[in-house]
Design a protein around this nucleic acid. Structure first.
Length: 272
DNA sequence: CTCAGATCCTGTGCGC
DNA sequence: TGCGCACAGGATCTGA
């Protein structure tokens, strides 16, 4: 899936195409996503007009005056806009139908989610209530990161990937940001200095902004909402580059496993 | 409270 | 060419 840049790119493409469109129907082809999908949702949605398409963490929000359709792409989900009567493929699980087009949700691994939340239920919902700061805001800064990491023994990479303090940093961009900030991914979060926090925050913002500008990264099977294939791993410094030379110092890139997730780093640029 | 590990599900790619 | 196994972008739950 999609990390934050892919979700944001999806939104950037969907927003102009969906705003002011009126929902004509909903077709659901599975009940089992990460969260159960209400098969009778169609009655609620038909007739509602899309006001905006926004994002919170990696949740994509299609907003109407009454509430929001909340979509999470999980590990393998994608959205695209197709013509009416375009036949559904194997893992096409939800269609949101408009007058002249369909927004189609595909998710082979079914780790994603598609649900409806009324306005009053949105902010307090369990999916949203424990989410941390958006990484591209001023609230996510070095001072805040420094304070919240004190006494934490968890490796900094895992800490970044939790959503409690900062959201939207997934497995790819955690490795990439730490490389750019020259911080070893196994370093205990509580051990990073204020100066390292400054560099890390700065690099996280740069890396995410760049990926968004590129139109969302790098997934070989990532399909943008217009149906065109996405980019493929062209810009990664360390992710997926085990055994290849570091682009800055030529040292061989290494891989290790942290909390069950592959982690890539340069042992010379990111010393312990 | 903190943290490690298992878990949901399917597809792909590798070594044999 | 076919088969089995390891691994994959996330997030949540359990239990030590």
């Amino acid at each position: 899936m999609p990390e934050l840049p892919e979700v944001q790119s999806t939104i950037n493409i969907l927003q102009p195409r969906l705003v002011n469109q009126t929902i004509r129907g909903l077709t659901v082809r599975t009940a089992k996503l990460r969260l159960p999908l209400d098969q009778k949702l169609s009655h609620v949605l038909v007739g509602l007009k899309i006001q905006s398409v926004t994002r919170r963490a990696k949740y994509l929000l299609i907003n109407t005056l009454l509430g929001s359709i909340v979509i999470h792409l999980g590990m393998s989900g994608s959205l695209r806009i197709v013509n009416l009567h375009e036949p559904a493929q194997k893992h096409d699980y939800v269609d949101l139908e408009f007058e002249n087009s369909i927004l189609r949700f595909t998710d082979p691994r079914k780790f994603g989610a598609f649900l409806w939340l009324k306005n009053h239920a949105l902010a307090g919902h369990k999916l949203f209530v424990n989410l941390g700061l958006e990484p591209l805001t001023d609230e996510f800064n070095a001072q805040a990161l420094f304070l919240v990491t004190r006494n934490r023994k968890m490796p900094i990479k895992q800490f970044l990937m939790q959503n409690q303090f900062v959201v939207g940093i997934g497995n790819i961009y955690a490795s990439e940001s730490l490389f750019m900030a020259k911080i070893n991914p196994t370093l205990a979060a509580g051990k990073i200095s204020l100066r390292q926090c400054q560099e890390l925050v700065k690099q996280i913002k740069i890396v995410l902004h760049q990926a968004i500008e590129l139109g969302g990264s790098t997934l070989k099977d990532f399909i943008k909402p217009d149906g065109k294939p996405g980019y493929f791993a062209n810009n990664h410094q360390v992710y997926g580059r085990t055994g290849k030379p570091c682009l800055k110092c030529d040292t061989t890139i290494e891989k290790l496993v942290l909390a069950g997730r592959s982690t890539f780093f340069c042992p010379k640029c990111q010393p312990k």
